[in-house]
Design a protein around this nucleic acid. Structure first.
Lengths: 109, 109
DNA sequence: TGCCTATATAACTAATTAATTATACGATTT
DNA sequence: AAATCGTATAATTAATTAGTTATATAGGCA
């Protein structure tokens, strides 16, 4: 579960949409396919799901003839929070205040 | 500054590396190019910078014959925090506890 | 003015991605 | 055992991305 794979997985709108679905409840592959009916084929969804699993942000479990998918919140929050901590001075400890102030003046937001 | 563009911008390791540099101090395009010496050409970096700017996560300012770049922390944290809030039940208010518990049992982390 | 320096853009190419249709596979039902 | 259902994989193709070299543009300096 590399950082690279996680950000790669998040770079697709359909994949982020799948994550949003899974954040509310676990689903079978078929249920997810239905949500994308008329927009994308079953194999396309299957591929997206395998990318998400390979990135380590969802789990997969075969039950009978269905395959259930669910969110691995910890992996997702872990990666993003770690990235934010690395890249955002304001959340970094012992930063000099003058830096952040100057930066904010430059036209933030 | 769409969510799509931000995640697209973050999906590249060199671009995340540029953001990490900019999180410590503003830099000119040339200084950034130097950090990638022997790895990537000047035009390649220029392209990455324009993608980052277009996504709204960095600002750009021409000063004399240099162009200075800097991080727009607020845009970055804003987008990621919003995404996390949307996708991570544990950070979502009024969630039923039974959901999260069941999910955690499934093999989180 | 004419020449550097810093940066961006253009033209091109190779590699990757994202979809499609067709097919295979494993589990259930008859 | 055969048909069916749910899902994944294979083969293919079109579109996108990420880099290259070459060139343009704009600012500072002799």
């Amino acid at each position: 579960m590399t950082v690279d794979k996680v950000f790669e997985a998040l770079s697709s709108a359909p994949r982020r949409r799948i994550l949003a679905y899974l954040s509310r409840t676990d689903m079978t592959a078929g249920e997810i396919v239905q949500r994308f009916a008329e927009m994308m084929s079953q194999p396309a969804i299957s591929k997206h799901l395998s990318i998400l699993e390979n990135a380590g942000v969802v789990w997969r479990e075969k039950r009978g003839q269905n395959v259930h998918y669910g969110l691995k919140e910890d992996a997702l929050t872990g990666t993003l929070v770690h990235f934010l901590a690395e890249v955002c001075p304001r959340s970094r400890p012992f930063r000099k205040d003058s830096e952040a102030v100057a930066r904010r003046k430059k036209g933030q937001s």
